[in-house]
């Protein structure tokens, strides 16, 4: 082999490794999402004034920190091969508990603990229902969705404003620089993201979650703690929904039974666009975060466009979902 060949073959190796990465069901979809995000961001920057800036990104984070947290919980569930339809309703329940609890004079700490414990418990019940009685996740979480939404109306039919000083302080922007600001919610969501990445990648619980999505039967035969993991996944989703509700109440400073209608669908969309396979087994939490940003970017671009109805957001998201599901199908069936 001559010296001239070496760089060429190295180049070829890089090319083949890149194609491998893009056609792998593991990393392919998330890389496509990453590219899509960059293209949209740059294209938006070319088309609209003041789009291509850190402000846009930070605004996205502020507006969608609650969706990011929902998507984190949803990632666990979908990677394990399940689905959680209750997250939107649980988010609403959590805002109502917050508003009502503060209204009757409970201290903020108690309210926060109450929310996180009760939503985690709901998740635990759903997980047990799925695991012990072998009920389809779709059905079990649908029941939880109706339960949570119903509870919202029992606690309060009307919107309740939040005036608690701690909650209002959480809504205040934290100034990072000229025209650059975030909120405490963003920090909380990002911390949750880091923890989720670590759990999924570096703990046995996380790897077992992937194992369940890849093949529950095989996982059982390999001696993995499938049952425990499956229940825990729904506890995490419940906890994340509660936390997301909390962030939402920081953001809106109110609790209302009708918030978060369709929130579960936004979360699922973000996760799928972020490259997680709907049938489970493949996906990254960071991909879901990217998915949230892409959804937010679509919304922002339509706002910048000005003349378009905001319903176009839904149409674009729908089209994008379709493309990603087909892409996943192609990537996984090619390997089979």
């Amino acid at each position: 082999m001559t010296t001239i060949d070496a760089p060429q073959s190295r180049f070829a190796a890089v090319v083949s490794r890149t194609t491998d990465a893009f056609t792998s069901p593991k990393s392919g979809p998330v890389l496509v999402t990453g590219l899509l995000f960059i293209v949209m961001f740059v294209a938006g920057g070319v088309r609209y004034n003041g789009f291509f800036s850190a402000t846009t990104i930070l605004n996205l984070l502020v507006s969608y920190s609650y969706l990011l947290v929902l998507a984190i919980g949803m990632s666990f569930v979908i990677i394990s091969g399940g689905i959680d339809l209750s997250v939107g309703a649980v988010l609403a329940l959590s805002t109502i508990i917050a508003a009502r609890g503060l209204q009757v004079g409970l201290p903020p700490v108690v309210v926060i603990v109450l929310i996180l414990v009760s939503t985690s418990t709901l998740g635990l019940l759903v997980g047990l229902m799925i695991n012990v009685f072998q009920i389809q996740p779709f059905i079990a979480t649908l029941a939880a969705m109706f339960l949570a939404r119903g509870l919202c109306y029992i606690i309060a039919k009307e919107s309740i404003a939040i005036t608690d000083p701690f909650f209002t302080s959480m809504a205040q922007p934290i100034i990072l620089g000229p025209r650059l600001s975030i909120t405490a919610s963003v920090i909380i969501a990002l911390v949750a993201l880091v923890i989720a990445v670590w759990v999924l990648q570096y703990t046995r619980f996380g790897r077992t979650t992937y194992a369940i999505g890849g093949g529950e039967q095989s996982g059982t035969l390999m001696g993995l703690p499938i049952a425990r993991t499956k229940v825990l996944v729904y506890v995490i989703s419940g906890f994340c929904s509660g936390l997301a509700g909390l962030l939402y109440s920081f953001y809106t400073l109110s609790g209302y039974a009708l918030t978060g209608v369709g929130g579960e669908l936004d979360a699922i969309s973000a996760v799928v666009i972020g490259g997680t396979l709907l049938t489970g087994g493949y996906g990254f939490v960071l991909g879901s975060a990217l998915g949230v940003l892409v959804l937010g970017l679509i919304q922002t671009m339509i706002t910048f466009e000005g003349t378009l109805s905001s319903w176009w957001t839904k149409i674009f998201i729908g089209a994008l979902l379709l493309v990603f599901i087909v892409l996943q199908k192609v990537l996984t069936s090619r390997r089979a």
């Binding site: 069901p25 992937y210 194992a211 999505g213 890849g214 039967q217 095989s218 035969l221 390999m222």
Partner: peptide
């Protein structure tokens, strides 16, 4: 096992 009971996604 006969049908390889491993996890193809990992």
């Amino acid at each position: 096992y006969q049908e390889v009971n491993l996890l193809g996604n990992l």
